[in-house]
Design a protein around this nucleic acid. Sequence first.
DNA 1: TTCCAGGTGCATA
DNA 2: TATGCACATGGA
Length: 280
Amino acid sequence: MDYKVFKDRIEINGKEDFDIEHILECGQVFSFVKTDHYTCYSADKKAEIFEDEKGFKIVTKDPEYFEEYFDLKTDYSKIKSELSKHKILQNPIKFGHGIRILRQNLFEAVISFIVSQNNNIKRIKNILFKIREKFGKNIGDFYAFPTRVELLKATEDDFAKLGCGYRAKYLYGILRQVDEQTLLEWQSLPTQELRNRLVGLIGIGPKVADCILLFGYGKGDVFPVDTWMHQMYGQFFDRCENREKIRNNLTKIFGNLSGYAQQYLFFLMRAKQNKKGIEK
DNA sequence: TTCCAGGTGCATA
DNA sequence: TATGCACATGGA
């Protein structure tokens, strides 16, 4: 895939390694809107993505930020060719060939995946947009994701009123347990140590920690096991295991590319289940 | 109405 | 160490 960064946009040539629908609808991110095109919101930045016959145009005031965000410097054809050696991944990769793992804002990822627990994607999106509107800075035609300092003004009841349910106390608590700087400093830790730190925070369990590691820290050697992956494992491997065992087994198989493997599997599983499908 | 969603924390054995 | 249950809420 080749692409070019301009002052006000990025132009992507080809669709094999970049498909905005695959990228956004594979469950890794919640702050986007679909109209006749997709609009992405990350932290205090925004990009609109348009598809044409040749590829995609990412229109934004912050092209460098979104070059990083969409992980454009990484060669996904290499990743896919490596992962395609595993029979179980051949169909999922074919189906979700345009998936890329987003490099999301760390703090936003932490809050987002706490909200995501035992919740459905539509509702997660609503709650996160409400959090933006209520506590984030108004940037013209959208709201930035609030900083920790901005969110510290929120009471537990404020979160509950936005529909967070029992997660309100986790959000209220997490803001008082860790700040953005500390989260950033943990970046250099080995994955397991970093995971231990995250799981040590009230409101973050193994699954949410793995999502933060993968989508916030860009650690490929984790495999988030949620209800869908639990189902998938039962179907493919024809046996029942607990989530921690599934996670351990699959990271052993996929190594540093575990997180990528997980996304291809998740996307296909959910599309099948939704029936309406996100097929092309 | 009932079930379920990108789970977690806590009590109990 | 492992298992079971409560927890909020709205979409399907």
